[in-house]
Design a protein around this nucleic acid. Structure first.
Lengths: 220, 220
DNA sequence: GTAGATAAGTTATCAACGGTAAGTTACCAC
DNA sequence: GTGGTAACTTACCGTTGATAACTTATCTAC
């Protein structure tokens, strides 16, 4: 008689409580995306887990992509938080760059599934491909801008470093791109092929940070 | 009366000529994959372009993935070829490392779909997840090993560099990993977010190569 | 030259997918 | 109560990758 689903809640939401259903959907979608990937996660699976019918999801999200976008923003907020902690923290700009890179890599490694989802997201549909890297001209209130925020923080930090008197080998923007690309390559490799016999993680992280810094900062 | 399709050939193949149909399918699939991407390319579109019915494709390929895998192997053979040319070519090992990196990046940028599948490939169906990152113990005759071959060539080149008397800042394996990760980060970024206002491509390629080399090779 | 054998292909169909239309039910304000 | 509407459901659509079962052309053997 009663539903056999694993729904956290049962029955219809009261008036004005729709947002809690929205949260439930988001949580179920996140779990399933992480467990099975984007494509394998179907609208029906999400609906089943929540305990509602499939079309009910469309009351809260325009489509499947919108759920992914909302989740991306959630996860980016965590990363942005820890980066802001560093930016407000002590130390020379160069030291903060070190901590920035370190925090970025460790965030990726300790949230591998989210990182995969957001930064690597590859078989994700064309329309989502640009999540996290929207053009600056895009509406900043639209979901999916988290990556651009992280990146702009990095650009700002590089500009700070230059302003503090340290000479850069390339323009700050280019330095930021090179820095991010290197760190992303490191994280992506470790995440995507964890069973590959990579060298020691700590060694790789330290070495990559070292390489990027010595390559970007002009010898005094 | 006659077919309106753009099929290069018409009518049924003679006995023993099925392989030419297979080649036609592969060519059409490649064109469509490159034009529209993997997901947007449907079995029916490929079949239409070839001028046969959709199920006919299954006479030559087990499924859609098998077509992509065959194409990847085809394309990666090109990269491996050009890398082997470099390895056999003139110049000091260090110069060859430069040309290796350059060839690698340009290959990725000019074959984004194959690169995505082999090196970034993630949410692409489980069966393809580890394509390009197979363990050394895996069957080398299975399709999709192109990436691993490339990487092993890089390791060998780094070992050569060390053997030639150039001191490395890290063990050859670690250097190869750092080198590949950096280059991969560059390629992945440009491929996955092509609309982002990155700095000039040539500048980025040159800078990244420079950074990695100065970071890996010990100052004489 | 015709009778299998079989390569090369077709038509019909499947279940599952994302998404929509239209109807239903529970709740709240008045 | 009763109207309005938020919160759903059922029924359905076109498209997808893939399969089953049937047909047709071609080659070989006698």
């Amino acid at each position: 008689m009663t539903a056999l689903s694993t729904a956290a809640t049962s029955g219809r939401k009261k008036r004005g409580e729709g947002h809690t259903r929205r949260d439930e959907i988001l949580q179920a979608a996140k779990d399933l995306f992480l467990e099975q990937g984007y494509d394998a996660t179907t609208i029906r699976k999400i609906a089943d887990r929540v305990g509602v019918s499939a079309p009910a999801l469309y009351l809260y999200f325009q489509d499947k992509e919108a759920m992914m976008l909302a989740l991306c923003d959630q996860t980016f907020a965590l990363l942005i938080d820890s980066i802001d902690q560093i930016e407000k923290g002590p130390g020379m700009p160069v030291e903060r760059l070190n901590r920035f890179g370190d925090a970025y890599v460790r965030f990726g490694l300790s949230h591998p599934d989210e990182y995969r989802l957001i930064f690597i997201g590859n078989n994700i549909p064309e329309s989502l491909r640009r999540v996290g890297h929207r053009m600056p001209t895009d509406d900043p209130d639209r979901p999916g801008v988290g990556g651009a925020i992280v990146f702009s923080r990095l650009v700002a930090l590089l500009a700070q470093i230059e302003a503090s008197g340290v000479r850069l080998n390339y323009p700050p923007d280019t330095c930021a791109e090179l820095c991010w690309m290197s760190m992303h390559g490191l994280v992506a490799a470790l995440i995507m092929k964890p069973e590959f016999p990579w060298s020691d993680r700590e060694t790789l992280i330290g070495a990559m940070l070292q390489i990027v810094e010595t390559g970007i900062l002009r010898k005094a």
